[in-house]
Design a protein around this nucleic acid. Structure first.
Lengths: 212, 212
DNA sequence: CCCTTTCTGGACTTGCCGGTCCATTTTCTG
DNA sequence: CAGAAAATGGACCGGCAAGTCCAGAAAGGG
């Protein structure tokens, strides 16, 4: 916790990060100035630079980490317990609901564009987020396998990667178009794909019998 | 073609847009100034404002349209002829190759962040791009149905939406992490999902995918 | 060939915003 | 209760880049 040696200091620093996150969500990175953040958080210019000596970029990076942590937290506890079809469905609903509420703004995406993906730390934040997210999806798929709901032959890692990509793309498209249909389609077909890999004996939902 | 009444004028305007697109690809939106574009295109400040009276935003929007047109053009002719498993595979390879070459920079994404999604025209550009892209995928899937390679029961629109989302997300993840595994996974599982919907009689290839 | 319109060059203005500085207050430590 | 270290307030600076302006050159058109 650089530049925050006392309780008061840590509190102020946290207030800055949270407040900055709020401002950034509301008005976007491009049009947010340090003065906006200063106003919102009731701080002074010198405080901003006291806690983030490297300036705006360092602050933005801290906000990025803050937002990244929220992404997974908002999906819990469902994301951590994907061991039945019902739990997958609940997770799917939570994801849709979370991003529909977030509206057409992607805090993380814009942050990285501003900071620059190459900056030490920036790439690491998103890579780690994706790694954990995908890991939890894969874990859920293995749980389905363990419970005999999905064939052990399923390539879990590839499937989890594809599902994660679908979610990311669905969100991205929603940001641009305002329509969540793609996100829902990606989630539903992804889960359908798992269902199709169910051992025939326990196949849960007759997947649309239309062989004629 | 606002502000370009003569051949010479139109040529200059086009030179500005293309040059600006180049600069933006190389150094990103955030750090590109009108002077950079002026240097690159061998023009003067007054020319920039002559052809784009509303200033930088209007120019960026024109570049966005330019880049959007490229996206689909780069996938042709494969995207237009998705009527066999082989053509789907070729398209898949072209997409991967195109985005791997593009590296970790997304001209369109950054452009919209800078301009703001809400600006009249901005949202329309990406919405139209997605609509056309998805339309061509759906058309390809219907061609498979017509050729008896895929069950007529397949929900083409949902499947196309999901595949498009996967591609978008795969690209987005590649931009952030530098790894194209998610893009490949999304494409391959998406196409697998189609293969799984093949009428049993003509099921083409036992889905054996090379994974790396 | 003249007169209008379009196009071009580049100097100049202007406001914004990241960053600096130092004085002052508060908190920690022994 | 000192003295040090941390935290705070806010005035100030300086550069940069978007946008303006006008003079002058080229096209176009009757």
């Amino acid at each position: 916790m650089p530049g925050a040696a006392t309780v008061k200091g840590r509190a102020t620093r946290a207030r800055i990060v949270e407040g900055a996150a709020g401002v950034l969500r509301e008005q976007g990175v491009a049009s947010t100035t340090l003065d906006d953040i200063r106003d919102r958080t009731g701080t002074s210019k010198s405080q901003l630079f006291h806690y983030f000596p490297a300036g705006k970029d360092e602050l933005l990076l801290a906000v990025a980490q803050f937002e990244a942590d929220r992404v997974l937290a908002d999906q819990q506890p469902h994301l951590g317990r994907l061991d039945s079809w019902e739990s997958w469905q609940r997770w799917r609903d939570v994801v849709v609901e979370r991003y529909e509420r977030q509206g057409d703004h992607c805090p993380l995406g814009s942050l990285f564009l501003q900071v620059g993906r190459d900056r030490p730390g920036a790439r690491a934040i998103v890579t780690e987020l994706m790694r954990q997210w995908q890991g939890q999806l894969a874990r859920g798929m293995r749980a389905l396998q363990t419970n005999g709901l999905v064939s052990p032959a399923l390539d879990v890692d590839r499937e989890a990667a594809a599902l994660l990509a679908g979610v990311q793309g669905g969100v991205a498209i929603m940001m641009s178009t305002g329509d969540s249909a793609h996100l829902k389609a990606a989630l539903d077909t992804g889960i359908d794909h798992l269902r199709a890999a169910a051992p025939a004996a326990v196949r849960p939902v007759p997947p649309e019998e239309a062989r004629s």
